[in-house]
Amino acid sequence: MSDDTTIFAAGLTRRFGTVCAVHEAGLNVRRGEIFGLVGPDGAGKTTMMRMLAGVLPPDAGRIIIAGVDVVADPERAKEKLSYMPQRFGLYEDLTVAENIFFYAEMFGVPRALRLRREAELLAAADLSAFRQRLAGQLSGGMKQKLGLVCALIHTPEILLLDEPTTGVDPVSRRDFWAILYNLRESGVTTLLSTAYMDEAERCSRLALMVTGEIRRCDTPARLKQAMPGMLLAVTADDPRAAKAALEGAPGVLGLLLMGDRVHVRVDDAARRVPELQARFSAHGGSGVSILPIRPSIEDVFVALETEP
């Protein structure tokens, strides 16, 4: 564990009855990183977050948060971090300002500091004009931004966010990420889980989680370079029919329908492009274009998810 490590986990395992939600997972997150945890529903992301936050004890493994052993002393670790679950505990019958006051009091933030932090955070979240509005009357995106303001009111070193922008409109997502970038500049470490692959691209590093295990961990650029196989984009008049025609073709490692085209992962692009063109011709396909492309994080994740 290096000196700039703020989140360290090794061998984390958690079972619920006969189901192993997280199996021997480990992370090493550096100070000031925006670290992303990506995986499908049921991959174990929320269980992982809850263990890191000290609200769910692991069955096995070790967690160090800002130098504090979370398993041995979870209450002390909570002083160093802020955890925003998928459904953050806002009080809808309280105003924006009253919700902030509640969380500031809970963390013992002095009044002068609270007022200064409140003004700064509301301005950053574009919520200053809504200070006296009931939280229950805010839009979904505004509620998420208010949740982030409440999570930051005590100036934590580490921020844990469990899919914070799910169901949030694009403008609010943009504002949310602007806040995260500003936090990074001030040295705050953020670990977030996300279902949005465009958000995954924005992270410093990513951990790809499948069935409770961390499959890969690296920068988005290096993960793309490490994707097994080569990627082709097949554009056709009927992309679904094109995908069906490619299933079972020699050298095809994976298929992913992406809007009006199909992403095809092959073992050797130079060899397979002529073969695929011939396959389309044999199936009576016309107007088909096949071009090599660079993979996206979604392509990488789908490829790694299907690895044995």
Rank of each mutant, 00 (worst) to 15 (best):
I7H: 03
F8T: 13
F8R: 15
A10M: 03
R15N: 12
G17H: 04
V19Q: 14
C20N: 04
E24L: 08
N28K: 05
E33S: 12
D41M: 07
A43V: 14
T46S: 15
M51S: 14
V55E: 15
L56Q: 11
D59N: 15
A66L: 11
V68S: 06
V70Q: 10
E75N: 14
E75M: 13
K78V: 09
S82Y: 00
G89K: 08
D93C: 07
T95H: 03
N99Q: 09
N99C: 06
I100F: 00
E105R: 06
M106Q: 07
R111N: 03
L113P: 03
R114A: 14
L115D: 06
E120M: 09
A125Q: 07
F130S: 14
L134W: 04
Q137M: 02
Q137W: 01
Q137T: 13
S139M: 10
M142D: 14
K143G: 10
K143S: 05
L148R: 14
A151P: 09
L152V: 09
E157K: 14
L160D: 00
N182T: 09
L183M: 02
E185M: 04
S186D: 06
G187W: 08
T189I: 02
T189H: 00
L191E: 09
A195R: 08
D198L: 05
S204Q: 05
S204Y: 05
V210W: 04
G212A: 11
I214H: 06
R216F: 06
T219D: 05
T219Y: 01
P220M: 03
R222F: 05
L223I: 10
K224F: 03
M227Y: 07
A233S: 12
A233L: 08
T235H: 14
T235E: 15
D238A: 02
D238S: 05
R240L: 12
R240Y: 05
L246E: 06
E247I: 00
P250Y: 02
V252N: 01
G259T: 11
H263F: 07
A269I: 14
V273A: 04
E275D: 08
E275L: 13
L276H: 03
A278D: 06
F280G: 02
S281M: 03
S286W: 01
V288A: 10
S289G: 13
I290T: 07
R294M: 12
S296D: 02
D299R: 10
L304K: 13
T306A: 14
T306D: 13
